[in-house]
Amino acid sequence: MAGKRKINNDVYIGILLTALSGFLFYETSKIHPEAAQFPKVMIAAFIIMSVLLVFFGIRKTLNPALTLKSDTLLKFRVIRTPLIVFGVVVIYLALIRFTGFFIATFIFVPVFMIFYGVKSIRALILTDVLLNLFVYGLFVRLLKVMLP
């Protein structure tokens, strides 16, 4: 991080949020006027705050001493694994849609566990089977909740 000055993340986030809230504000024009009052006020506040965020972000870029710890946490190497995990979750959800809940869960649980480094086959099977049984017993039989 030495040498070249790093633009504080807030600047990017602020710009993103300003764009988003600006778009939302435009959307409110399509809504019945009376119903649009509250949203307009909210979104206007959103826009103002996003702009402020950009402003403060610039200030922090120019004066690195002001950077808070929470500004520095977003590094690609750090977020890479969680993003992969999230991807797996999305695939799981999609799978539920196509193969139904129990099959999807049956497949997903060991995959997840292996990813997390669980080596014991016994643990894999036990968890998978018991979890599915548990969800089935509680949700489908007792509580009569129909799962997909």
């Binding site: 643990a123 036990l126 968890t127 018991l130 049984l133 548990f134 509680l138 039989r141």
Partner: peptide
């Protein structure tokens, strides 16, 4: 720990089948 997790799950299953219709 796995045993404990299993125990809890089993309890749940037991409750479930006790209440089936």
């Amino acid at each position: 720990k796995i045993a404990v997790v299993c125990l809890l799950l089993c309890t749940g299953v037991f409750l479930a089948f006790a209440g089936g219709s």
